[in-house]
Each structure stands twice: as C-alpha cells, then as structure tokens.
Amino acid sequence: MSLIQVKDLYKIYQMGNTEVRALDGVSVSIDQNEYVSIMGPSGSGKSTLMNLLGCLDTPTSGEFFMDGINVATMGDDELAHIRNKKIGFVFQTFNLLPKSTSLRNVELPLIYNGEIKAHERRDMAIKALTRVNLGDRVSHKPNELSGGQRQRVAVARALVNNPAIILADEPTGNLDSKTGEEIMSLFDELHKQGNTIILVTHEEHIAAHASRVVRLLDGKIAVDEATEKGKK
C-alpha cells in the first residue's frame, strides 16, 4: 500500500448561498521516498490539498489513508498526534518561535511527542541541526540567523521527529534565488537519504527538483506526470 492514499477527496465550503468546491474529487497516491511537487494557480485548491495532506484540516468527504491509518474521520487531538509523529512541516515564512533558540525550536515537536526524555530530545535536536549544517548555531535565536539559516532550522525541526513525509509549502518563497537553491539542494539530499517529500510551489524551476508533479486546476487534478528529472 502507498504511503499516502487519497480517494475522491472533496472539500466544500458554503459561502452564503454559493458552494465553493475547493477540492472536487481528488484521487492521488504517493509512495514511500517519492519526491512530489504540487502546483497550480491560486484558487486551484493547492493550499486546501496541502492542509489536508498535512492533517491540519479534515475533508468534507473522501478517503485519506496515511501510512495505513484512516485520517479522514479523525478528531482534533488525533490529528495533532498524526501531525506530530508523521508529518514534518516547512513553511514559506519559516514560522520559528522568535524568542527561542534553534535548539528549542527544533526540540518542539519532540516535546509534544511526550515520550522522549529531555536529554534525548537535546541529542536528537542537535543531530537534526547538524544534518542541515547548523551544528554551530544551536544557541542562536532566529533574529541572529540569516533567512537561509532560519529555513534550515525549520527543516531540522521538520526532520527531528523522523516523520513519514516532509511537507514543504513554498519553502523558497521568502528567500533570494541563491539561498533558495541551497535549500532545494538540502531537500534533494534528504530525498536521497530516503525521505518522502511533498513540495507545494508555483515556480517551475523549484518544482523541477521533484521527480513527479501534480498540477491542480479548479479543485481537480489536471496533470499528474513525471518531471524531466523523474524520467531519467
């Protein structure tokens, strides 16, 4: 079975008298160690799909299995646990806690895990920061770091819980192109190490890093194909 199995997923909002079909019957499956880009113009349902895949939201109807678990019908707290254990988020705006050090930021998912002792948390967080080449920045706060470094802290935070998928939403959107490329090569590296990565972007050259691209239009999947890199 695939890592992510989505079938006939609908997300419908009621806006006054009109019905907005943000997702209008989406079916997609993503395997272990895939590298997928999700693309589409604004209003295409890209963000909605990402929120659903990130277990931040629940669908109106449809099936959604992650790692064999049915998450479509889960409640708030169960979703929180799934997010904590199965998903690593990387956001466009980094979303680090500004008053906490890199170490504390990276430790955060482990704290909410609730089963990891303090000294283990520390070790795991340092290891994750070392993986993104920030082993020497553990006690820096976000405002003492460059944009690229901040995003790398965020990547370390996404990695630290050893999640099933890393979900990156426009991870280079707030970075200059050179730093963006650095972050993308970090993702490439993580993919090579066996991680499953889902990338939401509207930039073709960023999407090209993935081996598969899913294009959404009006809440439906318009294209689902291998990229140049994936064809090789």
Partner: peptide, 16 residues
Amino acid sequence: TREIGVRKALGATRRQ
C-alpha cells in the same frame, strides 16, 4: 496566534 498555529502544526493538542 501565530505561535499557537505553529505549536498546533507541530502536534500540540488543545489540552496542551
């Protein structure tokens, strides 16, 4: 608010 959003995304439950 944003901090709460981040904490929730990283797996904090309502109770926490």
